[in-house]
Design a protein around this nucleic acid. Structure first.
Length: 105
DNA sequence: CCGATGACCAAAC
DNA sequence: TGTTTGGCCATCG
């Protein structure tokens, strides 16, 4: 397990149900604000069910179904099951579900 | 190590 | 809103 992916998973696990985080956000929190790309690559290789990778979306809330991790439509179904709402554009309402990392939260 | 690819992000048209 | 271009980092061959 590489330290990089380790940090990413650690952050994704910190994301509570009903909330979502963006790749850039996780990247920044992991200490690499420019490795948003790498975050996606790491999550794409995610094999740990303990990591709610379905709560990770792009900076616009758009979901990218990866056939290696989820079936087409599964990610959205999971988020909706947690209380996350979507817009007519098929994007997550980040204004209401964007995860805000807190120290005491 | 090098070359190609990708679940990204920001800027421009 | 959608397409195209440039930069970044990690993974795979």
């Amino acid at each position: 397990m590489d330290s990089f992916s380790q940090r990413i998973y650690a952050l994704v696990r910190r994301v509570p149900a009903g909330k979502v985080a963006t790749y850039g956000q996780l990247a920044s929190l992991s200490g690499a604000p420019r490795s948003a790309r790498a975050v996606g690559t790491v999550l794409a290789a995610c094999r740990d069910p303990s990591v709610p990778c379905h709560r990770v979306v792009d900076r616009l809330g758009g979901v990218k179904p990866a056939f290696d991790t989820f079936a087409p439509g599964t990610q959205r179904a999971l988020l909706e099951s947690e209380g996350v709402t979507f817009t007519r554009a098929g994007r997550v309402d980040l204004a209401a579900h964007l995860w805000h990392p807190r120290d005491g939260g």
